[in-house]
Design a protein around this nucleic acid. Sequence first.
DNA 1: CTTGGGTATAATGTATGCTAAATGCAATGT
DNA 2: ACATTGCATTTAGCATACATTATACCCAAG
Lengths: 222, 222
Amino acid sequence: MAIEHKTRTQLVAEAIREKILTGEIKAGDPLRQAALAAELNVSRIPVREALLQLEAEGLVNFEAHKGATATELSASQIDEIFDLRALLEAELLSHSIGGLTDQDLIDAELILTELESAMDAGDTHLATGDLNSRFHGKLYSRAQRPQTRELVDMYSKNSERYVRMHILLAGGLTTAPEEHRTLLAHCRAKDTHKACEFLKSHILGAKDDIKKLLLKIEDEKR
Amino acid sequence: MAIEHKTRTQLVAEAIREKILTGEIKAGDPLRQAALAAELNVSRIPVREALLQLEAEGLVNFEAHKGATATELSASQIDEIFDLRALLEAELLSHSIGGLTDQDLIDAELILTELESAMDAGDTHLATGDLNSRFHGKLYSRAQRPQTRELVDMYSKNSERYVRMHILLAGGLTTAPEEHRTLLAHCRAKDTHKACEFLKSHILGAKDDIKKLLLKIEDEKR
DNA sequence: CTTGGGTATAATGTATGCTAAATGCAATGT
DNA sequence: ACATTGCATTTAGCATACATTATACCCAAG
């Protein structure tokens, strides 16, 4: 395997992205170029370029001459993003489900088992982040829709911090873990329609939970 | 209206975008930072930042240490993009159609009239670019789905150059202009289902035309 | 006390120049 | 003749330095 040279810009982008996703940088916080540059021991140029990338990912807003801030998603924006996710992920799944091999399904089940034991161990961070997206990703892996996939990944990443926040504040996932089992079963049965509809309601269900919480928080601000 | 100060980066981005959309820069062409900087009388920094933005828009590929190239869309990528557009634009329309006012519909019709006279005058550039997107935009204007809208605009822009290319090579639009009238009628009737289905087939029809041409070109390369 | 304008300051935007990586070519050895 | 290594050239990446813009503050006028 070839070693890869990461540019400073890429490293900086990863660092800032992580800060935003973990909540170290909260929504609305201003991102000062000079401060970040000093902290990461680089000049402002790679910081600026990283911020531009993150803007494309929807994690920061970049306003000319005013600087960057971590994006603050309103309840209505969350609403829209999850609607988009439902739409796009169902589309992906419908294109992928026919091509899923037995091995793919076994792999997905293994990830699910890991996910469940992570949940039992109380590691919601791992369960909702990496493992969750790996499970969904496995189901979409045969879609051969790279651009759609990219969009889906982007929006997943973008909503991840809100899912995490929800877990913190609500004290756990409300979406039942057995939903994943059901989804997997539909995929096994190659029942595209049922699988997609179930996936949509799975995503929209998560949305409703998060939105409720967010609306409450928005209210409390007044 | 507030006057707005455009940064060099924005100006450069617009300039390069235009070059790509008009075909002055062809798909696959390398974009040399120094050359662009010299041509536009700026330093390489705004050029770099503009290229990063354009990468987010999908118009260029940016590879570390190798430079940027105008994205080259294969037939299968075109396929996927138009599928996405059909999906997303139908979604937008479904959210917008109920909110469309009489005035909106009149405005849309006016744009359509302009579009038709531009077509009669042989100005396909204007008809397919600005006027076409303004017509569709008017129909989506009440959707209150800013993120979806942004995606749709991005993909429209991205496919525009292929539509133009198609017109050049095929000697005209194959999609009948009266399709727009039909779509408008469905919107007037507030028939969401019919309007969305019609819109989808409208977009997918355009896709097929362009894909055919693209496949032919790809074949001819061998 | 409020409002308007001008200046100070802090932040972003951009130019210049240096560093480092990738590519092509030539020289050397097999 | 071919592969391989090293060098030279080109191009991108980045740091430093300077220019420009926005904002906050102060002072003066109403």
